[in-house]
Design a protein around this nucleic acid. Structure first.
Lengths: 127, 127
DNA sequence: AATGGATATGTACGACCATGCATATCGGTT
DNA sequence: AACCGATATGCATGGTCGTACATATCCATT
């Protein structure tokens, strides 16, 4: 089981927290929100992302509890069985995070080139 | 077991990778290198950081394998039992990472203020 | 009231990982 | 040669986390 291996690159994991730990909100939850907005249902959103409904549902719930606000408005029953859409707050968080994320990643690329790429490229040759 | 809970703040985890996964190098390994430089031994470095020697030793080894270069020079035996010091590459990585890390974190703070703090502060009031 | 598709939630199992325990090895000094 | 403190490693274990399985609930439409 060999892994893909290329040049050394910088990676990043961003999240929001009120106690220093991860789990409150991050890229995973962000993709989930985006998928819910597109699909209109937690189940289809989860399927599209290749996760189980159980996890997606739990993620939403834990995030809402942690933030103290609702991210989605859910309905059950009816001809379609039910549906889920983002609240206004959910949409704002989705968009704010997207901009935030892109800004930080750009900064990361720049800082990497500035402070580490030289050392690591040189390293590639010498090894 | 209640957790400390304050305002929502941005968190970050930085790492180096050649295959998208974490584990090659990050803040944990960086602190370990710094501690080794200060203490002159893996054992004392680990103790100072509150980890076991077993883990510290394994971390160094895995990182060296992943980067394909040696980070430390180790000696065994003698009156002191042995010692470990950083290689030139180890020192450069230590310093480069420190500068890289600080630059990215500053960028993160700025981006957070710009794109998310307004939304989240407003959220604090309303909840 | 019967249906169907989605939400809601507990439970269990397996993979992964951090940590600790035990033990072997090394080698300059005494 | 004995000693001592650090390096070197395997192995067992305990907890976390993702994922799967099983059910229960809901309700507009028919």
């Amino acid at each position: 089981m060999k892994k893909e291996s290329g040049p050394v690159r910088p990676g990043i994991r961003l999240y929001l927290s009120d106690d220093g730990s991860e789990g409150m909100f991050g890229d995973g939850k962000w993709r989930l929100l985006r998928s819910i907005e597109e699909e209109g249902s937690i189940r289809r959103a989860a399927e599209k992302l290749g996760r189980g409904y159980r996890k997606a549902w739990g993620d939403i719930k834990r995030t809402e509890n942690a933030l103290g606000r609702e991210l989605v408005r859910k309905t059950r029953g009816g001809p379609t069985g039910g549906a889920t859409e983002l609240t206004e707050f959910g949409r704002e968080l989705l968009e704010g995070w997207q901009r935030y994320r892109e800004a930080v990643m750009e900064g990361m690329e720049g800082a990497f080139e500035l402070h580490l790429s030289g050392l690591l490229e040189r390293s590639e040759d010498e090894r």
